[in-house]
Design a protein around this nucleic acid. Structure first.
Lengths: 216, 216
DNA sequence: TTGCTTTATGACAAGGTGTCACATATAATA
DNA sequence: TATTATATGTGACACCTTGTCATAAAGCAA
């Protein structure tokens, strides 16, 4: 987390720093990005940087968290607006989300960085996702999601593991986007890939006659 | 890929270099690992290193590929040995694989590095996986896997996308291991998590009465 | 004004990377 | 064998990063 000093900063300076950081992270991977460039971009002395952040990662995670908040808001909005049951809602949401991420003109390459995050970072972001709260505007956690989707009829085999399941499906969505990005698929192709996989999860891949073996 | 020069090297020197590199990658992340340490570890001049490899990543991917070959061999062996259908075979294989990776005393921390690879590297490794061939010993590709598992009866809803599906399930397995590692789960817990997710994929998560909507 | 606390700054040591001119070994040919 | 061509080995070097620290400046309270 950024140090208090960073939050005490006048808004202009804080925004300048964020802009400078995003410029750097937009064209370079987390590893290739350098603090030297960021402070040069934002006209801030090197020493000051270390007064605001622990290191490069600290700043990076902070930015990731900011964007994650937006994604998450999009998700809740989708569920609220969509008609039909959970599966249809999630399908719609997924398609929207993919479009949003892959065509976002505002964040540009920064999204790519997001998609290229290594698993460690990804996990860290997902943990952050669990307890996201930006300036007091808290978003519901996993259990609250369940409540929301249940109002449209969540037709699951079991209620157990439902939070884990939702987390898994969100991972599925993110991973599909990553895969689409990596394979240079178009938005439509990526959406199709996601829908296909969501159907795998929803209906299973085994042929209907195939039965789960009784536990011994 | 390492340069030809590397493969022309006398075995002793090549092994020395690999050992030195593994020592470094075992205790440091890819980013933190340094060529300086590797050449120090293996008593090789800095200049020589660049005669063998493009850079640090080049060496790293080469090592990853070597280990991946072993994993893959384990997979085929499992399918050949296991009784029952594809799903049971895959379940067994997954459990074995998890045990193998999480308890491997030989590679130790190097496995951790493998698990922490970022997605980009992961993808690169998976692409390599598609066409793995070590010293002429080729392993079957996705289609061949299908043939192998089919002999035990592959009870899928469709034959279409079967290669994609297999790739996806392998990803599921790897991701579960990563998640287990990250959440500091035991081998047993990780195996359970994997089995649960494999069942999601196999049988679906929707309750049986839930029907796929007719296409409009 | 005088302290006291917080913020700003850039020089600096430590350490990493990739290159290059040059040394040496190995193979090929006259 | 002597000579030439090709392949390897080497470490000093220029250039770049990082995180720190002594020092300066600014803000604030009494």
């Amino acid at each position: 987390m950024p140090k208090q000093t960073f939050f005490n900063l006048p808004e202009e300076k804080r925004k300048r720093l964020i802009a400078g950081a995003m410029k750097e992270f937009s064209s370079r991977s987390l590893n290739d990005a350098s603090i030297s460039n960021i402070v040069k971009n934002s006209n801030i002395s090197r020493g000051s940087f270390y007064q605001y952040f622990e290191d490069k990662n600290d700043l990076y995670f902070y930015l990731i968290g900011k964007f994650h908040y937006n994604y998450r808001r999009l998700m809740f909005k989708s569920f609220e607006e969509e008609e039909g049951d959970f599966f249809k809602g999630y399908k719609k949401f997924g398609e929207k989300y993919i479009l949003y991420i892959m065509e976002s003109p505002k964040f540009g390459f920064f999204e790519n960085m997001y998609l290229h995050m290594n698993y460690q970072i990804n996990q860290q972001a997902r943990v952050g996702f669990e307890k996201t709260s930006v300036k007091g505007k808290k978003l519901p956690n996993g259990k609250r999601i369940v409540d929301i989707v249940k109002k449209d009829g969540l037709k699951l085999k079991t209620d157990k593991d439902v939070v884990d399941l939702l987390r898994y499906i969100l991972g599925l969505l993110n991973d599909t986007i990553m895969e689409g990005f990596w394979k240079e698929l178009s938005v439509e192709e990526t959406q199709k890939l996601f829908v296909k996989r969501l159907e795998w999860i929803t209906f299973g891949i085994a042929e209907p006659t195939y039965k789960k073996e009784e536990k011994v």
